[in-house]
Amino acid sequence: MEEFIGAWLSANGAARDRLLPLLHAIQEEAGYIDDALVPVIAKALNLSRADVHGVITFYHDFRRRAPGRHVVKLCRAESCQARGAAALEVQAQDRLGVAMGETRADGQVALEPVYCLGLCAIGPNALVDGRPVARIDGAVLEQIAVEVAA
C-alpha cells in the first residue's frame, strides 16, 4: 500500500487538502484504511498522525477494518421510512443475519445505514455493493440476499 500511496501522491499532489481524496483512493484500493498506514499518510501530507486519525474517524465512509465481502447500505432516512423502510430494516437484519451497522461474523456481508441516496420517490432504497436498488420489498430483498450470499 505504501507504494500505492506514493504513486497516488505523485499523480495527485501532496497538499493537505488531498487527504480526503487519498483516503478514498486507499479505501477503494484496499477496502479499508489500515491504522498502520496512518503514519505513512501523515508523513506524506505533512500532517500529524492525530490529524489523519481524527479525519478518518470523523467520516462515516472511512473504515478502519476490512469490510464484509458484500456491503448493503440501506437507507434509513425519512422518505424511505415513509415507504416502509423501518419494517424493511428489521426484515433485512433477519434475512441477512446481521445487525445494522455490523459485519456478519463470517465476513460475508455488512449491513450499513445510509441516510438518503437521493432516490426519494422510489424507496426503500439501498446500494448493494455500490449498485442502486429501489422499491425494495420482500421479493427484492430476497434477490439481494441471494446476491450477497455468493
Binding site: 425519512e78 422518505s79 441516510y115 438518503c116 437521493g118 432516490l119 426519494c120 420517490a121
Partner: peptide, 9 residues
C-alpha cells in the same frame, strides 16, 4: 445534498 426527500442537485 443530504436532505432526505431531495434529489434536484
Amino acid at each position: 445534498e443530504g436532505d432526505s426527500g431531495t434529489f434536484a442537485d
